[in-house]
Amino acid sequence: MTANNPVVAAFVAAINEGDKAAFEALLAPDATMSDDGSDRDLGQWTEREIFSAGGHFTVESQEPDGLSMLARFRNDTWGEMKTRWRFTLTPDGSKIQRFETGQA
C-alpha cells in the first residue's frame, strides 16, 4: 500500500530506497520528531534507526489524509515491528514539519 499523501509517500519511498538525500529534502529545515513519546535528535535517530540499519517501511493502514498510519517497520537492529506514524506538514503542505512514531 502506498501512502495517500504525496509527501508522506515520498518519505516512505526514500526510506525504502535508502535515499538519505531525498529523505532530507522532504523535511522542513527545523523539522522535529519523537519516538515512543520522547523527542529525539532527528539526524541521529534517522541515521541509527533507518539509514545505517537498513530501515524498511510497509504501510498497512492509514487515515484518508495519509498523515496517520500503521506500518510494519523493519531494520537490522530491531527486526520487524508494528509501528504507528503521524505526520505534520508545513502550512503549504510541501514538507514534513514533524513526525511521531512508536510501537503500535
Rank of each mutant, 00 (worst) to 15 (best):
I15P: 07
I15W: 15
N16Y: 06
N16W: 08
D19C: 13
D19E: 06
A22I: 04
F23K: 10
F23V: 10
F23P: 08
E24F: 03
E24D: 13
L27N: 06
L27R: 09
A31G: 03
A31D: 05
A31L: 09
S34R: 11
G37K: 05
R40V: 14
D41I: 07
L42F: 10
W45D: 00
R48D: 06
E49T: 11
E49C: 04
E49P: 01
I50Q: 00
F51R: 08
F51K: 03
A53I: 04
A53M: 07
G54A: 14
G54E: 09
G54R: 14
T58P: 00
V59Q: 04
V59C: 08
E60Y: 01
S61N: 12
P64Y: 08
P64D: 09
L70E: 15
A71H: 00
A71K: 07
A71E: 11
F73R: 04
F73S: 05
R74L: 06
N75Y: 01
N75E: 00
N75M: 01
D76G: 14
W78E: 14
W78K: 12
E80A: 05
E80T: 08
M81F: 09
M81W: 04
M81E: 11
K82Q: 13
T83L: 12
R84Q: 12
R84F: 09
W85S: 04
W85R: 05
R86L: 06
F87A: 10
F87E: 09
T88P: 01
L89V: 00
L89S: 01
D92T: 02
D92Y: 06
S94I: 07
K95V: 01
I96E: 06
Q97I: 03
Q97D: 12
R98V: 00
F99Y: 15
F99C: 05
E100C: 09
T101V: 15
G102Q: 13
Q103I: 13
